[in-house]
Amino acid sequence: MIINADVAVIGGGPAGLAAAIECRKNGIENILVIERDRQLGGILNQCIHPGFGLHVFGEELTGPEYAQRYINMLAETDIKTMTDTMVLSLSSDRVIRAVNAQTGVAEIHAGAVILAMGCRERTRGMLRIPGTRPAGIYTAGTAQRLVNIEGLMPGKNTVILGSGDIGLIMARRMTLEGSKVKGVYEIMPKSGGLKRNIVQCLNDFGIPLHLSKTAIEIHGKERVEGVTVASVDENLSPIKGTEEYVECDTLLLSVGLIPENELSRGAGIAIDPKTKGPVCEKGFETSVPGIFACGNVYKVYDLVDNVTKDSVLAGRSAAEYLKSRSF
């Protein structure tokens, strides 16, 4: 099956939705948004806490509320969507191969492509924390999905490694759901999270934040039974003699996000080794003409409001690109 589109947007999270809507506003007619999950909205669907929308809407919304505003805006247009659809490949001449249960493998030929695949979390494997490999180790985002979407509690006694925003949010969330959060351990001398999250998610609940400390070993055969933590020196190496055993049945990791650029690489798009996102000259156009990038696939953002603002610009650039080519 071959589908033609003026603009194909890969990813139906906040970035993809804002970019698609902006393309429509700029007169582009045949727009297709491809989303791998069963519904639009991306990671916002599991971010049920407030704090979104202060800059864009001037009011405080939860993640699903913020996403819903864009889903509603999209519904008022004739933008087409394919959900539960996985993109398998993207080529430099803007051919997308995507698969779902209804149409099978489809080829989408697009005039312009907007990349909005978001990011993934760094894992235990990448941190190379020694020790055993029991159940009960999750990235903070996966734990967030389990608690907020699946209705499952990862465990009773939680240690959080890394003080990224998702980790801070999950410290509060796990506490509210009845888990004892023993502490948040951050290898750096300061937290990578927003100040307001440290106040509202840790301080307000009496959860200690341990700076310049990290986990050096994971214990437990079937479930996690504990972690050994230690202070680190200025080279981030553990200091002998400062080891401390913390009993827990759950370890959540909030140690950074990585833009998901496997598709971009497949299309030959140049990737910035520092941001791990596409190198974009201006207007969020990548090194491959006609392919644009926005949101966390471009670089990891702190605030969704900023994702929206930049994605609008990316959508506008894609529209301009198409118009300049049709004349």
């Binding site: 699946e150 499952l152 009845g178």
Partner: peptide
């Protein structure tokens, strides 16, 4: 039930219980 899914059998349960 979801809460009884294990990582590798025995006591290696993925989650502890359903949320309240």
């Amino acid at each position: 039930p979801m809460s009884e899914v294990t990582k590798f059998g025995g006591g290696s349960r993925m989650t502890e219980k359903e949320t309240l």
